[in-house]
Design a protein around this nucleic acid. Sequence first.
DNA 1: ATCACAGTAGCACAGTCGTGCTAACATGGA
DNA 2: TCCATGTTAGCACGACTGTGCTACTGTGAT
Lengths: 200, 200
Amino acid sequence: MPKLIDHEHRREEIAEAVWRVILREGVGAVSVRTVAAEANLAVGSVRHVFPSKKELLEFSMALVHARARERVVRHTGLHDPRELAEAILHELLPLDSTRRAEMELEVAIIAETPAHPGLRAIQEEAHRGVRAACHGVLRHLLDRGRVHPDADLDAETLRLHALLDGLALHALTSEGAPEAVAERTTGVLRAHLDSLRPPA
Amino acid sequence: MPKLIDHEHRREEIAEAVWRVILREGVGAVSVRTVAAEANLAVGSVRHVFPSKKELLEFSMALVHARARERVVRHTGLHDPRELAEAILHELLPLDSTRRAEMELEVAIIAETPAHPGLRAIQEEAHRGVRAACHGVLRHLLDRGRVHPDADLDAETLRLHALLDGLALHALTSEGAPEAVAERTTGVLRAHLDSLRPPA
DNA sequence: ATCACAGTAGCACAGTCGTGCTAACATGGA
DNA sequence: TCCATGTTAGCACGACTGTGCTACTGTGAT
């Protein structure tokens, strides 16, 4: 038997190279050659693991969502419902460079769907995941009396989800120091959750 | 004097060809050649008006915003504050094919900024415009007693703006019949404006 | 020591890209 | 009628693209 390579690990290394290229030069700069150079591999090696560009791109984008999902579930043990809510929702906002990169990649995915229809399903699955997270957070808050009992849970889920993604988009495109942007973003989210509380 | 061409008109025709290419095949498919073909012009004619691809792309994207702005200001005469608010905000949501196309182009602009830094300023100007529209709408509602007088106008502006763009993003990516999506989107917005009203 | 074969390296092909450039064309003022 | 010139048309260049393909390398089980 010849030398064996951990395929999954290699695929993730290459996907991360794809990410770096997109963040630095945009999706348009992603090519088998640029990615191979970024990963310090020969083109042949990349194509050995990803036979076509389509698979390269789809795997890289799906991995973005997988990583985010991992981070979110890591918070599910928190007890205080408000703490849990903010921890989970903050994972889905571009508050540091890692999460910011994820959001930039998310936009790139959406923008690329006309050219790569295979990305649509990947994007939709992530969309449903975030929606479910919003629903879960609100349900938890409602059950613990932190949300007005007359609230329409489904409607509030739509509103929170839209607010969350809108804040994410704005944090991505707005100018200013990262800390100031993060502070403003979390402030809006905090105020929104406050506005859902039952009267004291 | 030889044949004269209305340059401004020609530029808009070409920009609309750029839009069609982006919507059908993605930003990556925009090239001097594909755009010339889409506009039924020779490459030379396109390059006569837009000497480089950079200018072609930047003008096309700026025109997206100009068109949207035109539509928004057309509503400024409305009397009822709530009617005015919804009319303006609806112009900024992808509720029909025209506005949907605009939102797709908006995402393409954001995704292209790493590759074309000149688009950043264009995007930021549009961002400030929408923010100002949200502020104006809320100020108007507040002055007419349709918003709780204790409300923090600046904070509510940030929240409404994020909600609006989040709803726009979701209307863009969500599956389902366009009418159903539009109904759900406007419903969330209506509920949000209701939640800002002073107690009866 | 041998050798099957996973992994690496890279050439070749046909196609597209942006841009510099020249040449033809057509038209309105003289 | 004639010509200056705005407009159109398109060739040429070097660079880049995705993919098919072959040749080489190194390793670990036999």
